[in-house]
């Protein structure tokens, strides 16, 4: 059932030190990008990871495929310890877990034709015999609804949405079981977004893919995912079934986040004018996260105890885990 299991993964980046800091012997500070994240990805599901900028969601995604080496914790893929994989075993893991990036312009080699880009992925992992590469390239283009003549063209000849299709085709080339998509539609206009969202939905149904979908867009998460994990300043604050979680969010941060999303619905304007901002204050610096629960300085229901200890992600009497000591039942 569990395809990928993450246990207590942390990733910190050393902050730049000025000359004065070095001379005065001040210890090097670290940006706590991801702190003690535990999560499981179930076979065949779409798991959403949402949060605002700087919450660590992209860093976490990159840890999952070992584009970043986590500082602590363990990642298991089909039971195998991912962080210990080497050589062929690591290449095999890379084949099974593929990534789709946000920027369809920056993630394709501008000097390679689309056909060459796809053929490269096929030959690196020796997915098909050399003679079958052109046929497989055609198949892949068809799978993402690009015309067959796309193979001879270069990335700059395509629109943003089409380029994202190429990125998805490249990820699919090696027949992965898990795709990690980091903000795959954020750079696209709404009307184009919809076609890429549909492509993900269709591919999942057809190929039985497991999908980790990282985004800041709650409307997309609500539409596309089965389960959702909400991150704030490097930690997961709540994780649960998407429909239930959106209907009755438990963590005060999740509640604020959902309330803040503007909607097209009847009487939206009256509702908006009769309420205060969903939450006050801004994201604290990840260099100096607040003690205890990182959300407590902005939290409407914070108590002194909230600043004492980091709350554990536990069920707390409900159907899914939440990291808030004020929540019960």
């Amino acid at each position: 059932m569990t395809l990928l299991a993450v246990e207590g993964v942390s990733k910190r980046f050393p902050a730049r030190r000025g000359l004065v800091d070095v001379l005065s012997g001040r210890p090097r500070q670290a940006v706590h990008a991801v702190e003690q994240v535990s999560l499981e990805v179930r076979r065949g599901e779409t798991l959403g990871i949402v949060g605002e900028s700087g919450c660590g969601k992209s860093t976490f995604a990159r840890c999952l495929v070992r584009l970043y080496e986590p500082d602590e914790g363990a990642i298991r893929f089909e039971g195998a310890d991912v962080l210990a994989l080497q050589g062929d075993a690591r290449r095999n893991f890379n084949r099974h877990v593929q990534m789709v990036f946000q920027d369809p312009y920056g993630s394709l080699n501008p000097r390679m034709t689309v056909g060459d880009t796809l053929a490269e992925a096929l030959s690196v992992h020796a997915v098909v015999a050399r003679a079958q590469v052109p046929a497989r390239v055609r198949e892949l283009l068809d799978l993402v609804h690009l015309p067959a003549d796309a193979a001879e063209r270069y990335p700059h000849e395509f629109s943003g949405g089409q380029r994202q299709r190429i990125g998805i085709a490249r990820a699919l080339a090696v027949e992965p079981s898990l795709i990690i998509a980091d903000e795959p539609v954020s750079a696209l206009d709404v009307s184009v977004q919809a076609s890429i969202v549909n492509l993900f939905l269709e591919l999942q149904a057809r190929l039985g893919l497991t999908l980790v979908f990282i985004t800041h867009d709650l409307r997309l998460v609500k539409h596309m995912t089965h389960r959702v994990a909400v991150m704030y300043l490097g930690r997961i604050v709540e994780v649960g079934p998407t429909a239930d979680l959106f209907a009755a969010p438990r963590h005060p941060y999740t509640q604020a986040l959902i309330r803040a999303v503007p909607h097209v619905k009847p009487a939206a304007r009256e509702a908006r004018r009769n309420r205060q901002a969903a939450v006050t204050g801004e994201l604290p610096s990840p260099l100096k996260p607040p003690p205890g629960c990182a959300f407590h300085p902005r939290c409407p229901i914070a108590q002194p105890a909230c600043a004492q200890a980091v709350p554990a992600l536990e069920d707390r009497g409900g159907a899914w885990p939440v990291a808030c000591i004020r929540v019960s039942g």
């Binding site: 009307s191 919809a194 076609s195 409307r219 609500k222 596309m224 097209v264």
Partner: peptide, 17 residues
């Protein structure tokens, strides 16, 4: 308006332009 998520049921195909 139709292309936006949230118009139909969750998980349903969207209507791109």
């Amino acid at each position: 308006l139709r292309s936006m998520p949230g118009d139909g049921a969750a998980g349903a195909m969207l209507t791109p332009i």
